[in-house]
Amino acid sequence: MPDFDVVSLPETDYVAAGEIAPEFTRPLVNEEYWEDRALSDVVDGPTLLLFHPMDGAFQGTYLYNTVDDHGWSDDVDVLGVSVSTPYSHKRLLADRGDGVRIFSDPSASVIEEYGLAHDIDGMTGVTESRPAVFLLDADRTVEYAWVANEHPAFPDAEAIDDAVTDLVD
């Protein structure tokens, strides 16, 4: 029995497979620096776009450990999105997420546009992203989508492996 409650999240209208991933511009962080970048400027081939809660949440840690374990950044560009600051992203990337860059979205406007925002229980006005994975082709068409419908929830790594293999082969 887990030491935490599993909470069902409300249904949401998120970006689905076959749709074009919405454009946005936010600070994009790597291990060394960050700069404002548009999604369309950095998607030039198969891209795994990962949304996660704040960097300190175990879901983000688990997600980037999974990225490292499966070597996804060797096959596709891996980009994250969360409400955390660029400083927090740099600390996260120092420990995990080899080859990953993360967009900082503290206003949660990108997260809201993708249909992934939810309020943190007991914290009025504090919004974060539910975990989500989108595999994009070079034209930003969503080829694979997974969005958490409960908290905590984690994507099926083997399904992502299969989707990446199908797109890059």
Rank of each mutant, 00 (worst) to 15 (best):
L48A: 13
D119A: 13
A108K: 03
A145Y: 06
L39C: 10
D75S: 15
T127E: 02
Y33D: 13
E150M: 09
A157C: 09
V67E: 07
T47N: 12
A159N: 12
V133T: 15
T85W: 02
P27W: 04
G80Y: 00
I160L: 14
R101C: 05
A94C: 00
S104C: 02
P152Q: 06
L28Q: 04
T141K: 14
L48Y: 11
G99C: 10
I111H: 04
E143F: 01
D98T: 14
A117W: 01
A57R: 12
W34P: 00
D119L: 01
V133I: 15
L50D: 05
E143C: 11
T127I: 15
S73I: 08
D68Q: 05
H52W: 14
T66R: 09
T66F: 00
D121F: 02
P106S: 07
A117G: 12
P22T: 11
G115E: 02
G122S: 03
R130P: 04
K90V: 02
E23V: 02
N30D: 15
E19V: 04
R130A: 08
S84T: 12
R91Q: 07
W146Y: 14
V110D: 03
D119C: 01
V78K: 09
T47R: 10
T25R: 13
A117K: 12
A132Q: 10
V43E: 07
Y64H: 14
L39K: 10
A57T: 12
D105L: 06
I20Q: 11
L63C: 05
L63F: 12
S73A: 15
